[in-house]
């Protein structure tokens, strides 16, 4: 199951999204998040879904990967859908059975929440993590935050930390899988018992995981020092990032889409 987590993984490629300047993509992501969270009407949601689909298509990431990345989210999706379905109040009762009442607004809210969450996760991963290599991402964040350097914020260190965190996600997931197997072999039980005892069963996984993560951190620090890391002083880059006109066009279109949402929110499609 843990292998399905694709969060923070980078899929090398040559699509338009891969070649877009990381800085632009970070700004785009911010715009996109606002865009998704502002949608209210059905028309706006359809538009959000279409835009996300377009992003997936131009990223050239296989649909299978996208669906796989949503799998761990399934529980949250179903949970929010159910909550919205049964606990929303409204005027039109569609179904009534004993104490369960399902309102039209409930169904609407449930669908909207699912679309919103799916788009948020898919959009974030397609726009940034799947298509941006960690070093580009670090570089993008560093450049965007450069103004903060003047007030003493260690921008480079922050960016480096982030990229290392992303780099180690798959490694630590693999490690967690190994620890789970090892603990199972010693007779640990993760599947039965109530919520409390299950949570308690996680301790023998988390403790070795933390210990090993610390050890890895020390070793990595040593290896980085060996390769003359000095926290960004006088650092150059192999790939020089250039913002191309296409990047600005891309940004322009997204901003227009974002503003468009506010108008689409006014459009009411008869249900």
């Amino acid at each position: 199951m843990l292998k399905d987590i694709t969060l923070g993984q980078f899929f090398p490629g040559r699509s338009l999204l891969h070649r877009t300047d990381a800085r632009i993509k970070i700004i785009l992501l911010a715009v996109f998040l606002v865009f998704v969270l502002c949608a209210k009407s059905a028309a706006a949601f359809t538009f959000v879904a279409v835009c996300t689909a377009v992003l997936v298509i131009i990223s050239a990431i296989p649909l299978k990967t996208i669906i796989k990345s949503l799998k761990p989210l399934m529980f949250v999706l179903i949970f929010t859908a159910v909550i919205n379905l049964f606990f929303a109040n409204g005027e039109d009762i569609l179904l009534q059975w004993k104490f369960i009442k399902i309102y039209r607004e409930g169904i609407e809210n449930a669908i909207k929440m699912v679309v919103r969450l799916t788009c948020l996760v898919t959009g974030t991963s397609v726009l940034l993590t799947y298509t941006t290599s960690p070093l580009d991402l670090t570089d993008g964040i560093e450049r965007l935050l450069t103004p903060l350097k003047h007030i003493g914020v260690p921008v480079h260190d922050f960016a480096m930390m982030m990229s290392i965190a992303l780099r180690f996600i798959p490694t630590l997931i693999e490690e967690t899988d190994k620890i789970i197997s090892a603990q199972k072999a010693r007779g640990a039980d993760f599947e039965s018992g109530n919520l409390f005892s299950r949570a308690k069963a996680l301790i023998p996984i988390l403790v070795p995981l933390f210990v090993s993560a610390y050890r890895r951190a020390f070793e990595l620090a040593e290896a980085m020092e060996c390769r003359c890391y000095r926290s960004g002083v006088g650092k150059t880059r192999m790939k020089v990032i250039k913002t191309r006109p296409a990047d600005y066009i891309f940004l322009g279109i997204s901003v227009v889409c974002c503003v468009g949402i506010f108008f689409l929110n006014q459009v009411v499609i008869p249900f």
Binding site: Q9, F10, P12, S133, P134, L135, S163, I164, L166, R167, T171, R216, E219, L220, A223, M224, R227, M238
Partner: peptide, 13 residues
């Protein structure tokens, strides 16, 4: 440990 000395996810980087 090869895993603990690779800094970036992509080989050439």
């Amino acid at each position: 440990n090869p895993d603990n000395q690779i800094v970036s996810s992509v080989v050439e980087e």
